[in-house]
Design a protein around this nucleic acid. Structure first.
Length: 422
DNA sequence: ACTCCACAGGAATTGAGGGGTG
DNA sequence: CACCCCTCAATTCCTGTGGAGT
C-alpha cells in the first residue's frame, strides 16, 4: 500500500472537516443568524445599520456565520439597489497601527500595498480614511475579527467609530462588525468606544451536545464512507466536547483524528476507542501549536519547570526556577535573561495555560512570592519538546539530560542541607 | 492594629531591527 | 544620503502589598 492511497475504506473526503472548509449550508445557530441578518437589513431601506459586536468562544460559529451572512448581504443588496463593500481584517497579534495598515492593504490593489512599518501613525490613519472615502460602494462593512487580540486598544477603535463625527469620512457609510472571543473585552472598553462599537450585540453561546451532533452528522456524511461510523461515536465526541469547550472546531478535529486513527490501524469502523485516541491527539496538537509560538527562552523555562515536576518538587517558586533556568541556559549556550524578564515570561506562560500560578505569602518570615507548576502532564511536554526540536534533536532524551542537570544543580545550591544526609 | 519581609508588578528606558521621506 | 517613525525584547528602577508574627 502506498503512502497516499486514494482508495481509503474509511475516509471519503476529509477536507470537509478542515478548518479551511466553508460549508454552503449552516446547521444550527438559527437565532443568532436571524439577529445578525436583521441587524444589517436596514441597508435595504438605505439606513446605515448600527455597529455590531459579536462575541462567543472560538469554534462556536461566529466567523462562519459572518462570512455566510455577508456573502448573502452583498448579493441581496443588489436587489435593493445598494452596493455594499465588505472588508475583513483579523486583528490577531496586531497593534492598532498594524491593523490600520491591514485595512489599507485590504482596500488597495495588490500592486499598491504599503509596508508594515515606517509611516507615522497620523499618516497611516489619513491613508486609511482616504481609502475608505475612495471606494465606490454606498456602504462598507468592516469586519474586525479577533478584535480582543488587538494589542493596544484605544488607537484604531477610538478612531473608527467616531470618524464620521470628526469629519474624516464623507459619503461612504461605514459599519463596523467587531468579533471577539473574550466576553470581558467589551466591559474593558472605554464607555465612549463601547457605546459606539457595541450598538448591537450578538452572543454566540457554546454549542450543546445536541447541536454538535447535528453539525458532526452533517459533515461526517461527506467526510466519511457511508456506514463506517460506530453508532455511539458522534454522540460520544459531542458529549465530551460540549463539556469541555463547546467548540465545533474541536469536535471536528477530534472526529478527524479518530478517522485517521481508524485508517491507520486498518479498522473497519471508527469506534469510541478511536475517538479517545483522537481526543489525546487533538490535545497534543494544541500544545504543540502553542509551543511553536513560544520563544526559545520560553521553552527553556518550561523545561526547567517540567524537570522540577518530574523530580516531585511540584510547585516551584520563581527564585528557584530562575536559579535552575540560569544553569540550563548556560549549559545550552543561550543568553541568560534577568529575573524580571523571567517573571514576565512565567506570567505569560500562565496566561496561556501552560503553567498555573499561585501566590504564597508567609508573612514576616518570607513576604509574598509566586509559585508555578505545569498545567499539563510533564511527560507530554517532554515528548513535544523532543519532537519540536528547538532544544533537542529527535534522538535525544530531554528527561535524561535534564535529570542529571537538576541533580547537580540541587547539590551545589544547598550542599549544607544535603551534607547532613551524607 | 501594626510591622515588616521578600518579593510582585508597573513605569520608564534602551537598543536593535524593520522601514519610511526628501 | 541624513533623519525620522514604529515595534519588540529586555533591563533597571522603584513603589506596592498580603498576611504571619508581635
Amino acid at each position: 500500500m502506498g503512502m497516499f492511497t486514494t482508495g481509503n475504506s474509511i475516509l471519503d473526503d476529509e477536507s470537509v472537516l478542515f478548518e479551511s472548509y466553508t460549508p454552503d449550508t449552516f446547521v444550527e445557530r438559527e437565532e443568532e443568524r436571524d439577529e445578525y441578518t436583521h441587524a444589517l437589513s436596514s441597508i435595504a431601506r438605505d439606513v446605515k445599520p448600527r455597529n455590531i459586536f459579536v462575541y462567543g468562544r472560538t469554534g462556536v460559529g461566529k466567523s462562519l456565520a459572518t462570512e455566510i451572512i455577508l456573502d448573502a448581504l452583498v448579493e441581496e443588496s443588489q436587489e435593493w439597489d445598494q452596493d455594499v463593500a465588505v472588508t475583513r481584517v483579523s486583528c490577531e497579534g496586531k497593534s492598532s497601527y498594524d491593523a490600520t495598515i491591514s485595512i489599507i492593504n485590504e482596500l488597495r490593489d495588490d500592486g499598491d500595498q504599503i509596508s508594515n512599518t515606517g509611516y507615522r501613525t497620523a499618516t497611516v490613519n489619513e491613508m486609511m480614511f482616504d481609502e475608505i472615502n475612495g471606494i465606490d460602494e454606498d456602504y462598507m462593512v468592516l469586519v474586525l475579527d479577533e478584535i480582543d487580540k488587538l494589542g493596544d486598544s484605544p488607537g484604531l477603535l477610538y478612531q473608527l467609530p467616531r470618524a464620521r463625527d470628526e469629519g474624516n469620512l464623507d459619503d461612504t457609510k461605514v459599519n463596523i462588525i467587531g468579533i471577539s472571543n473574550d466576553f470581558t473585552f467589551r466591559e474593558e472598553l472605554e464607555p465612549k468606544i463601547q457605546s459606539t462599537l457595541c450598538e448591537t450585540e450578538i452572543r454566540f453561546a457554546p454549542y450543546e451536545s445536541q447541536e454538535l451532533i447535528s453539525i458532526l452528522e452533517d459533515r461526517a456524511e461527506d467526510a466519511f464512507v457511508d456506514g463506517v461510523l460506530e453508532e455511539d461515536l458522534i454522540p460520544y465526541i459531542a458529549a465530551r466536547t460540549a463539556q469541555d469547550t463547546g467548540s465545533a472546531r474541536q469536535a471536528m478535529d477530534i472526529l478527524l483524528e479518530a478517522g485517521h486513527e481508524a485508517s491507520k490501524t486498518d479498522a473497519e469502523r471508527v469506534t469510541v476507542e478511536h475517538a479517545k485516541t483522537g481526543i489525546q491527539e487533538v490535545e497534543k496538537n494544541r500544545i504543540m501549536n502553542e509551543l511553536r509560538d513560544l520563544t526559545l527562552q520560553g521553552h527553556l523555562m518550561l523545561y526547567a519547570i517540567a524537570l522540577f515536576e518530574e523530580n516531585g518538587t511540584s510547585p516551584v517558586r520563581r527564585k528557584e526556577i530562575y536559579a535552575f533556568y540560569k544553569k540550563l541556559a548556560e549549559h545550552f549556550g543561550y543568553d541568560v535573561n534577568s529575573g524580571k524578564t523571567v517573571l514576565k515570561r512565567l506570567n505569560e506562560l500562565s496566561a496561556n495555560g501552560f503553567l498555573s500560578l499561585s501566590q504564597i505569602n508567609i508573612g514576616r518570615q518570607g513576604g509574598r512570592h509566586n509559585q508555578y507548576e505545569m498545567d499539563m502532564k510533564h511527560e507530554r511536554f517532554m515528548t513535544v519538546l523532543r519532537e519540536e526540536g528547538t532544544l533537542f534533536d529527535e534522538d535525544e532524551q530531554p528527561e535524561r539530560v535534564g535529570k542529571k542537570l537538576l541533580r547537580s544543580h540541587l547539590s551545589d545550591s544547598d550542599n549544607q542541607d544535603l551534607s547532613q544526609f551524607q
